[in-house]
Design a protein around this nucleic acid. Structure first.
Lengths: 249, 249
DNA sequence: CGGCAAATTGACTCCACTCAAAGGAGGTGG
DNA sequence: CCACCTCCTTTGAGTGGAGTCAATTTGCCG
């Protein structure tokens, strides 16, 4: 299991947070985060409900399954994974979260966090009381719309993952998803670091770790990729898309 | 493919709709539908944006993938399935929709319906302009909250389906989900009709139709079920839960 | 009754999993 | 600084569950 001593809860965040630092208007994430589409005046009002947390080290938890649902979090830097532990005690990875992505929206309907969320890297988040966000959304149509869009996008994403795909297709899709998300954040779409372990990737894609290794080796041998531990270089993006045979979105 | 002549679009619904019939306050779905939690005055305002459609026959489409996203629909009677067609032309069933369930929320982020939705039975829906719903949600906190809850619940559902489950577990989960949904709607949790074909079930659960047949036969032989074509009787609900080994939600 | 699609059943195949073992990489303490 | 430990990753060999192919049965509807 994870190091439970490293657990941190949201109330502590609040105390640690230095509100003065928060300035979405000058945040490098810009249009990638929740206040997307708000006008400058609205952004200024929005900033008032944002709490910036102190950095988390790899292995520290942001939420624990079962925690009361109060806040959502937006990744500022680093990378998180969310997971549940099934009946047999096996960890099931549900997703990875990059800067600008909103964590915790799946907890709304049950009022509790159904998943645990842990930092894979040194990471930082902004937390927002969900109560405040929804209240603010009532007077900011664009904020409300953005919340709906984020949840709708996650539904579509899951509908794809749930599909009947081969191991190769899954891996290809996974790499393409990362490539796309990194490139939107200003990083290379051809070369990036996998913050997560092979085991996490396997769990996320519902494969065995050995299969992840084998598929990556195979894709490398056929010249589509260059893999060195956590470093990935995509040599032929189009060929990889071919493997993923991704349906028109 | 489906009978495309039977396609109907939302604009035609509008014309056919007889607004005078709409009365959520007297609808038998009551707390199962979107206006859940609204006070009587709010329900009355809500009714003004609801359009009741004429009945659809089995095989008629409610939405087509690619249609512009304007409206969501709430199932009034009957049963629908939503599906996409993948790169190989194979139909992938994404879900089944019973009375009170909201269809179309996955279309928000792309502004187009990503899935097609077709009636499996003689069915009827209420349609709502999404623009109107979101606008109204701003002044009705409970409506906004309900929209968030519905989407959040769908995310959690998909996270489960996407899991790494055996054929038996999938079938058991599927039957339990139906049992639960029927019982909430006042029907028996032990006995119900499968509106969908074996092929649809298989596609939804990412199995082969033959596997669905075999598993149902196996569960029947071991005494948990009685299956006669579309009629299902669950003889041992707890044992079925055991098979599904569903994680605490 | 005849024609057709859906469903079932059986035989065989294959992809991904499991089991097993051999490398690395990184961290810790002597 | 090196020895040692542990965890992660990779690679090989064999197994099994679900898929595919094929044949038959069942039910439906004109």
């Amino acid at each position: 299991m994870e190091c439970s001593a490293a657990n941190i809860n949201i109330r502590e965040f609040r105390r640690d947070a230095s509100r003065s630092q928060v300035a979405c208007s000058r945040c490098s994430l810009g249009e990638l985060c929740l206040p997307r589409g708000l006008d400058p005046d609205e952004v200024q009002r929005f900033e008032k409900i944002v709490n910036r947390s102190r950095p988390l080290r790899a292995g520290e938890h942001l939420f624990r399954a079962g925690d009361e649902f109060r806040s959502v979090a937006s990744v500022r830097t680093g990378c998180f994974k969310s997971y549940v532990v099934d009946a047999e005690g096996q960890e099931q990875v549900l997703g990875f979260h990059l800067p600008g992505e909103i964590i915790g929206l799946d907890a709304i309907h049950s009022c509790r966090h159904t998943a645990s969320v842990v930092a894979l890297d040194t990471s930082a988040v902004c937390t927002l009381s969900f109560e405040s966000v929804t209240q603010m959304a009532r007077s900011m149509p664009e904020l409300q719309a953005e919340l709906f869009r984020i949840m709708s996008a996650r539904i579509s994403e899951l509908e794809t993952i749930a599909g009947d795909l081969s191991a190769d297709e899954r891996i290809a899709m996974f790499l393409l998803s990362l490539s796309d998300r990194f490139s939107r954040r200003g990083y290379s779409e051809h070369e990036f670091i996998l913050a997560m372990s092979r085991r996490d990737i396997a769990s996320f894609l519902r494969l065995a770790t050995e299969t992840v290794s084998r598929v990556l080796a195979r894709l490398q041998k056929s010249g589509l990729l260059k893999v060195d531990r956590k470093q990935v270089r995509i040599r032929d993006l189009d060929a990889l898309r071919e493997v993923a045979r991704q349906q028109a979105a």
